[in-house]
Simulated scan of single mutants.
Amino acid sequence: MSDKLLSPRELRVWHAFKLMGEDVLTRVGRDISDATGLSGSEFGVLSRLAAIGKGEMRQQVLANMMGWDKSRLSHQLTRMKARKLIERRSTGNNTVLVVLTRLGQQKLDDARPIHAESVRRNLLSRLTSEQIDAIVRVSNILGEDEDE
């Protein structure tokens, strides 16, 4: 590991990258919350359950998809279960299934158009087609495994 600190230019890039994502995510999350009462994290869990898991998913798989540690997801799911957005079902073998409830699906259905409009307003409409393509290219590069 290097002891060399980031240069001023490297710091500018790092801060721009962080602030860009945080700002857009905060705005979109606020729009969803104001309109539906769902937090951005709840929307993320519900949308993954619905789209990828077809309404249910193993808790560990969901944690991996969210990029969250087991504890963070467990606390989030406890809050969501109390709000009747999800159910947890033990299937034995230390496996827990997270299941989308009817209320969770309804809240997600209510939030999706808000999410779409907010993403368009807070991100897509503010960028040119070329800038959007550049973000996608950078994301693909950063998403690659360094070992490959």
Rank of each mutant, 00 (worst) to 15 (best):
K54L: 08
A16F: 11
L142R: 07
G104M: 02
N140T: 08
M66V: 03
E144D: 14
L11P: 03
V138F: 15
S39K: 05
G37H: 07
Q76M: 15
I135A: 07
D133H: 12
I141N: 03
Q105N: 11
G92W: 01
H75I: 00
S74D: 15
N140P: 02
E22Q: 12
V61C: 02
T36C: 06
D110E: 15
N94Y: 01
I32K: 06
M65E: 07
E146Y: 07
P113F: 01
L100C: 03
S139R: 08
A111S: 13
D31C: 11
V24S: 04
V99A: 01
F43Y: 15
Q105K: 10
T101Y: 03
N122I: 04
G55Q: 05
D69C: 02
L46T: 00
G53P: 04
E56R: 14
R88Y: 01
L97A: 08
M65C: 04
R12I: 01
D23Q: 11
I141K: 06
P113D: 03
A134C: 09
K81P: 00
T128F: 06
S7G: 15
R30F: 10
L11S: 15
G21T: 11
S139E: 11
R48K: 13
R120H: 15
N140D: 11
Q105F: 08
V99S: 02
A50F: 06
A63L: 00
S47M: 02
S90C: 04
D34C: 00
A82H: 10
A51W: 05
R102P: 11
R112T: 10
M66L: 12
L77S: 03
I86M: 03
L49M: 09
G29I: 04
D133N: 13
V13F: 13
A82N: 14
M1R: 09
R120K: 14
R48I: 02
S33G: 10
S2M: 10
Q59E: 14
S7Q: 09
M65W: 00
G40A: 09
K4W: 00
S118H: 08
S125I: 01
A63E: 00
A50H: 13
A111D: 13
M80T: 08
L124H: 11
D69E: 14
R121H: 10
V99Y: 01
G67N: 04
A111L: 06
R79N: 12
A116F: 00
L103K: 12
T128Y: 05
R120Y: 13
H15M: 11
M1S: 14
L124D: 14
E42T: 01
K81T: 12
E148S: 05
F17S: 09
L46N: 01
L49Q: 03
E146C: 05
R12C: 12
Q105H: 13
M66E: 04
L73T: 01
L19Q: 13
S139Y: 13
G92D: 14
N140Q: 12
M57D: 00
R102L: 10
L5K: 14
S129V: 01
E117M: 08
V119F: 03
R120F: 13
I52T: 08
L97F: 05
I32C: 09
L49Y: 07
R12P: 01
R83L: 05
L25S: 15
L62P: 00
L103D: 14
N140Y: 10
S118W: 04
T128H: 07
T91V: 11
A35N: 06
D31Y: 05
E130L: 12
L38Q: 02
L142W: 07
E42M: 01
G21Q: 12
G29W: 11
